[in-house]
């Protein structure tokens, strides 16, 4: 069955490649601009959780055409408590295998004894406006969407891992097909159950099935966004340190918290223009 999928891959490539090469971007953009999902929220309240406010912002943004949105994330490092709920939430949401982490958190020690502090730095994909990972892909399997999210076409990716080398943030991972239960007598169902990244159901039967063998990365939970939900790392953030939304909406939470004097962008000097901002 898995081999058949691989053979199907080749057949698809040979038969429809020329057409797909020219149309793939347009097709995916069209598919991504789905209808705004119907999600009802209570009316605004003065003491409402920022998650609800951002959810409201999200639904508002989804009413705009794809090209008019600009998804951004801002992480307030003063609020991050290093609980790794975002990391775990992301792994569960995207059913990530061992060795693939979309949102790790690093721990840095600042200062010298006795004046020391710990700083936690969550690192999603920066969704750069000038991404070094997309230009190096030899087969156009990764590109930046109009709404700012850098995506991967798992059916196009050849697994050369050049994008992993080119990303200055280490935000891309290689899916070798490892399982958490490798070497144990029982394989857990969640390790091979379908994934829904990029809004497409994918059955993981063996290494012949994508995304095994592909490069993988954080995509701001684009499948959740399309369904009117915030990225998993935002909703699981215990300290409410992660803000998300359409930065082009001046009334949104994200726009209000991002443009501050204490805003900082990771490795901005490389010219990558990250869409993720940190507040120090």
């Amino acid at each position: 069955m898995e081999r058949r999928e691989a053979i199907k891959d080749i057949g698809t490539i040979v038969a429809g490649a020329a057409l797909a090469a020219s149309l793939d971007l347009a097709v995916s953009t069209e598919a991504e601009a789905k209808e705004t999902p119907e999600v009802s929220l209570p009316g605004p309240a003065p003491d409402e959780d920022v998650i609800i406010t951002m959810q409201r912002d999200l639904l508002k943004a989804l009413k705009k055409p794809l090209k008019d949105r600009k998804w951004s994330m801002t992480i307030d490092l003063r609020k991050c408590i290093g609980c790794h709920a975002c990391t775990v939430g992301c792994i569960a949401e995207n059913k990530l295998p061992p060795g693939v982490v979309y949102r790790p958190v690093s721990e840095e020690e600042i200062g010298a004894s006795p004046n020391v502090a710990i700083r936690f730095l969550p690192r999603p994909c920066m969704q750069c406006d000038n991404p070094p990972c997309t230009v190096v892909c030899p087969v156009k399997a990764t590109w930046k969407r109009e709404d700012g999210i850098v995506v991967i076409d798992y059916d196009q990716c050849i697994g050369c891992r050049y994008c992993l080398v080119a990303c200055p943030y280490g935000a891309r991972s290689a899916n070798s097909g490892d399982l958490y239960t490798d070497g144990t007598p029982h394989r857990e169902a969640y390790e091979t159950s379908p994934t829904y990244e990029y809004g497409r159901k994918r059955v993981r039967k063996s290494h012949f099935s994508s995304p095994v063998g592909n490069a993988m990365k954080c995509h701001f939970c684009s499948h959740r966004l399309d369904a009117g939900m915030l990225p998993m790392c935002v909703t699981t953030c215990v300290g409410r340190a992660t803000y998300f939304g359409d930065v082009r909406d001046p009334d949104s939470v994200i726009a209000k918290v991002t443009f501050k004097p204490n805003a900082w962008k990771f490795k901005e000097g490389l010219g990558t223009k990250p869409s993720v901002t940190y507040l120090l």
């Binding site: 891959d9 080749i10 490539i13 490649a17 990716c157 050849i158 994508s210």
Partner: peptide, 8 residues
């Protein structure tokens, strides 16, 4: 990772 897609 996906050698059979080298035609891409």
């Amino acid at each position: 990772g996906k050698p059979w897609r080298i035609l891409n």
